[in-house]
Nucleic acid binder design. Sequence first.
DNA 1: GTCTTGCATGGGT
DNA 2: AACCCATGCAAGA
Length: 871
Amino acid sequence: MVSSSSSLPKLCFNSSCNQLLGEHSRRGWRRRTGEFADLCDRCGIAFEEGNFCESFHLNASGWRSCESCGKQIHCGCIVSFHMFVLLDAGGIECITCTKKSFILTPNPAWPPPSLLLPGLPERIKDLSVKNWSSIAASGPVPWRQAPSLFNPELHPKMPMEFDMPTGVDKLLGSKKLSDFSVDKKENLVYSGRLINGSLKGGASHILENGSSGSKCEEQQSPYVNDNLQSAMLKNEPSSPHPDLTLIPASKSEMVEQSSISVSHAQPLAAPPAAANYSGVDSSGEAHNGRPRDRNQLLPRYWPKISDQELQQISGDSNSVITPLFEKVLTASDAGKIGRLVLPKKCAEVYLPPISNPEGIPLPVQDLKGQEWVFQFRFWPNNNSRMYVLEGVSPCIQSMQLRAGDTITFNRNPHGKLVMGCRKTCTASDQKKEPVKNARDKASARGDAIAKKSKSGEVVTPQHYSNKKSVSSSILAVNKVNLADSARKSYKVVENKCDAKVQPAAKPDIGIKRKNSILGSKSKRLRMETEDMIELKLTWEQAQGLFHPPPNDVPKIVVIDGYEIEEFEEPPIIGRPTIVATNNAGEIIQWVQCEDCFKWRKVPGYATFPSRWTCSENVWDPKRSLCSVDQELTLDELEDLLPSSNIGEAMNIKAAKEDPDSLEALEGLDALANVAIQEDGDAYVSSSLHTTTKHPRHRPGCSCIVCIQPPSGKGHKHKQTCTCNLCMTVKRRFKTLMLRREIKQSEKAETARQKLQQPEQSGDEDIQMFCDAGNSSSSHNLVIGEGSNIEQFKKKSSNQLDLNIQPEREEEVSPVLKSGSITRVLQDSTEGLLKLKKISRSGGNSTVSQPSPTKVGEENCSNDFANNGSSH
DNA sequence: GTCTTGCATGGGT
DNA sequence: AACCCATGCAAGA
C-alpha cells in the first residue's frame, strides 16, 4: 500500500510520468495514507500551479465547467478534488468563485473544501462542517454527488480522510478509519459516480492506491448511495453491504468493466438515506414505530439504477436524483386494478407517514415530467400494514410497463418523488442489450451466470443430459427442466432472441410463487402469463430443444437403471429436429421451417434457434427459399417422425391437403390428445401433450385457440358452418374419435377379459365400472341409452364446440366440460384403474367409490344438458 | 355483469 | 416463527 519505500528508488507518483525522483521531490496531493504524493519537478509544479489535470488528464473524461466562470475542472480526480464545490442546483463551481461569492453549499459527498484548503477562511470551514453535518443528518443526500468519497469504506484511497479531526471525524462520530479493516477497505469498490452522471465509466480517474505507484482506475458504480454514509453516521461500520463488489483484479478487467457500461456494474447499493419526511432521523432511528434501520430494506428493493436511467430521470436539468427504492412489478401491480403494493419498509422509510388507512394523495412525477397523484395508503394486514399506491394504472400504462418491469422511486432535489422505470428485456430489447439484461438478472438473483456457447445460445451452466431414451430423456430433462430454467430466470424465447435462453422477462411471475400459480388461487393465471405459455412444453419437447454441445463427449451415468448422457458443457437450446442418417450413413437432421413448415435437411452438427426458416438454410442454398419444395415426400417424412409425433405427422398430412388449416390443427391436437388417451399414465402424458402442440399463443396468432373469443363471448361457429376451419375441425375430430374408439375398445376388451377371471360377483358397481371401461358403454355414459358409436360420432362431430380452448385445462368447452370426453375418459380410465385395483384385492365390493349409476347419470344429464344448451 | 374495494389467505423469505 | 406481500375473493357499487 505504501509506495514510498525508502529502500526503493522513488518514482514520481504521477503515473503518466513515473520519472525517477532525485533527492528533491515536490509534494503533491495528500494520499490516504496521510503521506503526500511525491512528484517530480515538472509534475509538482503542474500540481502547484493547478495545471496538473490539464497536463495529464486532459483526455480523460470528467471535465466540467465552473458554473460561474466557466473554468474547466477535472471533477472526480483526486488532484482536482479540492478545486471545486458541488452546487445544490447541480453543476459545480470552482473554488475561486466559491471564495468570491461564498455561497458554499456544503456537500455531503465531498469533504468541505475547508478541509483541503488551508487557505480557506475559517468562516467557510465552520460553515461547511456545520452545514454538512446538519444536512447529512437530516435527510436526503444528493447521492449522485455523493460518491462516498467521504466514506472510507467506499473510498479507501482518498487522501484526506485519516487526519481530519475537525471534519470527517466529527461527522463520522469520531469513527476512525482505522477501525475499518484494511481488507475490507481494499475489497470495496470505488464509487465513482461523481456529478450528475457526467463521469462515465471511462471517465474514471487515476487514484493512487499507494501500492508501488500503480494506479487503479476508479470504478464507476452507479449504485453508490449514502446509506453507507448514514451507517457511518450511525457508527455502524458493520452495516451490511452485501453487494459491494471487489475491485477488479486487474486493470484490464477494470477497463473491461468500465467499458461495458454502468449497467454492468454490480449493484452496490444499500438503500439511500431516508426521505425528509420519512420520520427517520439521521441515525436511522424511527419515529412513530417506523423502521429504525434503513438497512432493513430487502436488497431486492435497493435501487439498482443505472447511469442512463439516472440521466433519464434527471433529464437535462442535471438535477440531483436520489434513488430510493425500486420494485419489480408483479402481475397485480401492473394489472388493471391499478394497485401497486409497496414494500412495507420502503413505504415506511421513504414515503410520508400515514396513520389513516385511507392514506394521503402522493404526487409523483414520471420520466416525462408528468405529474401523477396516487393514493398512498395501507390496509391492515395481520397486525401489520400493507402499503399500496392506488391509481397507478394510468401511469403504468403511460410508461408502458408490464409485470416484470421495474419501477424505481427516486427523489429530486426538491424532495419530490420521481418515478423511473426499467423494462425487462423484450425480444427486441434483447438484441440491443443482451449483456445488460443477462447480467442484471443473473447477478441480481445470484444465479448462474449465463454462458454463451459456441453457437451463440446462452444457456445456464450446469451439467446437462441429453436424451438417450425416452425415459432417460425425461430424467434428463428433469435435471434441466424448463421449470428449473424458469426458476433460474431463464426461459426459452422464440423469434427475435433466437431462442437464446435468456433471463426471464418476468422473473417473479410464476417462479417465485410457482406453487401458487399451480394452486387453486392461480388457476386463472395458468395460461395467462406469457411465461407460462412459453413454458408449456412436454418433457419430450423440451428435451427436443436441447442439443448436446458440439465436441462434448457425454459421460454415461446410470440413475435408477436409466442411462443418462451427462455433458459437462451446457446444452444448446434450440429448435427440435429429427435426427436421421443419410444414405452415406452420416448423421443428418431434418428441421422444419417456421414459416412454410417444409422440412429441410441439415447437417447433424447444426443447431438452431427456436425459430428457424428456410432462409437460414445455409447448408442447402437451393432450398433456402420457402417456395422450393422439400426434399422428402411427406410420407417419407412421416416415417421419420417418431411415433410420439403423430400429431406432427398429421399436421404434415393435413398440410398436404390444406395448408391453411395447419394452425387450426395445432389447436386441435389438444382434442386429439384428449381423444386418444388410453389410461391414467397416458392421461398425464397427454395432458402434457395438450400443452405442447401449440405452446405459444400470441397476439396475432390465428390458431383455433386464439381466434376464438374468451369463453362465452363473441361469435361462435354454427354447427352448419362450413368454413374451412370448421370442416377441418370436424374432419379431424371424426378421425380422432374413431381412433379413440378403436383404442378404447381394445383396452376395454382387455379389461373385460381380466375382469372375467376373478369372480363375477354380480356386483353392479363392478359391472358398471366394467362398462365404464368399455368403449361402447362409455359412450352410453356420454350420450345416453341406446346410443351407438355411429350415433356418438355423429353427435360428436355435429356438436363439436369450435370454441374450445384445448390448452386451457380448466376451461374446456361446455361439451367437453360436462359430458365431456375428458370426463368420460377420466371416468373410464379411473374406473378401469379402480377395477384393476378391485380385481387385485379380490373384488371387494365395499371399496369406496362413486356410484357408477350416479356417474352415468351425471354424465348423461350433463351431456344432455349441454346438448340442449350448446349451440 | 362488471368494476372497485378491502380483507384474507398462504407461500415465500 | 414471524413477517411480508402477491393475489384471491367476496361484498358492495
